[in-house]
Design a protein around this nucleic acid. Structure first.
Length: 131
DNA sequence: AAGTTGACTATTT
DNA sequence: AAAATAGCCAACT
């Protein structure tokens, strides 16, 4: 894999995350598979870990396979932020801080249809300044 | 250049 | 149901 492809791989991950509809969530493994990187769930986590400078990636819609917000090694602040942002989108959490995957999990149906139409996320339902 | 690390997951206690 | 185990693989030291 050339260094150039490496960048493309990351872009593929970000592109897939961008396709997750508001109010839905996806798991790391699911994003990896849809991006053509089956078995690279950890790489998705790593990609999101360093997505701080990228503004238009709705990273809060990616959770682990248990439907929970994954723990970070440092800076726990973003964990709380993630939950707030998801709740602002209408995603409900159980008392244990988990999400009902059966209900909110994204099926990925829009992924293949609109791979080239970024207009899907034109209107984010959340106003970040209000959080 | 080899060893460590981690925003993962499936399996087993 | 929750915690430990064992695979996993690219990025980072």
């Amino acid at each position: 894999m050339t260094p150039r492809d490496k960048k493309i791989t990351y872009e593929a991950i970000y592109a897939m995350v961008r396709l997750i509809p508001p109010g839905k969530i996806a798991t790391y493994g699911q994003v990896a598979a849809l991006a053509g990187l089956a078995g690279h769930a950890r790489q998705v986590g790593y990609a999101l870990h360093r997505c701080g400078k990228i503004e238009d990636v709705p990273w809060q819609r990616v959770v682990n396979s248990r439907g929970e917000i994954s723990r970070r090694s440092a800076k726990q602040g973003s964990e709380a932020l993630q939950r707030v942002m998801l709740e602002a989108e209408g995603v409900a959490f159980t008392a244990g801080g988990k999400i009902d995957l059966a209900r909110y999990r994204w099926d990925g149906e829009d992924a293949r249809l609109s791979e080239n139409s970024a207009d899907l996320l034109a209107d984010l339902p959340i106003d970040l300044d209000r959080i």
